[in-house]
Structures are given as C-alpha cells and as structure tokens.
Amino acid sequence: MIELSGVHIVSGSFALTDVAFSVPRGAYAVLMGRTGSGKTTILEAICGLKRVVAGDIRFAGENVTQLKAAERGIGFVPQDGALFRSMTVREHLEFALEIRRWDKPRRHERVAELAAMVGVEHLLDRGVVGLSGGETQRVALGRALSFRPAILCLDEPLSALDDESRQEMIELLKRIQRDTGVTALHVTHNRSEAERLADVWLRLVDGKVVDVSSDAVSSDAR
C-alpha cells in the first residue's frame, strides 16, 4: 500500500538518502528510531509536506511523489494534535468534508459516526481550548479519519499522554484500524506502544529503514 524506493529528503542541514520500505494494505506499521533520526521527516515526505529530492513514493502502485498534500488523501495526526483554536470539536470533524463540499445531511451523518468512533460525542459543541491530552488526540484522530483516507499517518500521537489515556488510545487505534481497514504508519520512540500495535515493525537506523518484523519473536532485535 505504501511503498518508498530510493527516497532522498533534505531538511535543512539534515538529509536522508535512499530510504526504502513498504507497508502492505491494511497493516499497522510502526516506525521507530531515536529522537532526531528523521522519523518525522519521512512521515512528512509521505504526507506531501516535505519535498522529495529523488526517489518514488507509491500508494497502491500509484506514484504520488509529485502530488500535493491535499491530493494524497492521507489522514495525518501530528504530535500535539495541532487542533484549530477557532473551531469547535464538531467543526474539526466536519472540516475536511466541508472542503470536499459534502452536503449537510451527509456531513452530519458522518460527524455522528466519527464522534461515536473516537468517543467525543459529549464534546461536539465545545471549543478545543481546555481539552485534555487524550481528548485532543481523539479529536485529531477523528479529524484525520473524517474523509475516509486509505492511509493514516501518526506522528508520536501518544507521547504527551498520561499512562491511562495512552492505554485507552492504543485500544482505540487498534479497534479503529481493525474496523476501517486503514493502512497505518505510526511513528514513535516508545517500545511498548510498538509492541502492542505493530503488524509491521520498522526501525530507522543511521538513515536507513529496516523491517525488523521477522525478528519480532526475539525482542532484543527490536
């Protein structure tokens, strides 16, 4: 589903060369690596937020390397949620649908569905200032999934959460991925998160992405 080959990304003085890996359709891939190793940069390149100097990014065989972020159809959940302060929770869930000119009844139906899916029904008409960390990430997740993307990219979505919210979010992510069949790429440096979520386990070491899923049995290899 997601396929990178020979990808070269430059970000300021930092560069990743010849990044290659693939994530099969419907899999939950976790990309691990040290802080500053370039995990987020790879995610940004996949989302279309960072220009790729060379190489190809393919979704389901289609080359999307030159497509704009808006045209790639990826749900993106950034690290701190990056919610829009001027909007209510409902407006967040509706945003991408409004941009896509869905009609009102269809939008309302979808918002109700999403709110139930991520568990924010009781928050719909609230602003986002003052939401807890867990609530913030639920809204960000609902917003990312609103337009039914085939791919979900998550950038350390659980790093700012307390233990309890983290466990809840992990359960939620697993359930959502099972129910929607979305292909997920989740960046983290937290091993327990990866252990509980990953179907495909990737590691970024010295600028190269290595698939370590097959070594999964011996946890040392991770």
């Binding site: 808006a70 950034p78 990056a82 945003f95």
Partner: peptide, 25 residues
Amino acid sequence: FRKEEVALTLGCTRGQAFWRVVLPE
C-alpha cells in the same frame, strides 16, 4: 505552521488553509 500543514493534508489549498485556519486563529 503544523496547523496549516494539517489543513493541507485535509484537502485545503494554501489559500484555504490561510483563510479558514490561520486568519481565524
């Protein structure tokens, strides 16, 4: 800037991201 980037992934043009997300904020 992350907020604008999120808006882009949600399907906005740069102009829409500015008008709907940045300016209200």
